[in-house]
């Protein structure tokens, strides 16, 4: 049964239902914070500049994400640190 279920849900990820849900979740983080478009990108650059004063970074793998649980948003910033700067 599991296999059949999996079979029928195979193309779920790009179904209208899931697309709608994903788009909604991203959109609402911005809505709830009243975050203007582009502001997050500015923050990313500034954070990167501050952190790279102290560490050498693997810039390609840094990752920023806005997530939320129970209508509260969290900013997740992920830096791959190579070594500390003297």
């Amino acid at each position: 049964m599991q296999i059949l279920n999996w079979f029928f849900r195979l193309n779920d990820s790009d179904s209208a239902r899931n697309t709608a849900k994903d788009r909604m979740q991203k959109m609402l983080v911005y809505d709830r914070l009243e975050l203007p478009a582009g502001r997050l990108e500015v923050l990313e650059e500034e954070l990167l500049a501050v952190v790279s004063r102290y560490f050498e970074l693997d810039a390609d793998t840094t990752h920023f994400d806005l997530q939320q649980t129970e209508r509260k948003a969290a900013l997740i910033a992920n830096f791959r640190l190579l070594r500390a700067k003297c």
Binding site: R9, A16, R17, A20, K21, M24, R71
Partner: peptide, 18 residues
């Protein structure tokens, strides 16, 4: 439509809106 994954389900809406 929900069954055919063409529409958000009630749980989807609840997930989103908490």
């Amino acid at each position: 439509m929900v069954r055919n994954a063409d529409m958000m389900s009630v749980n989807d809406v609840l997930d989103i809106l908490s």
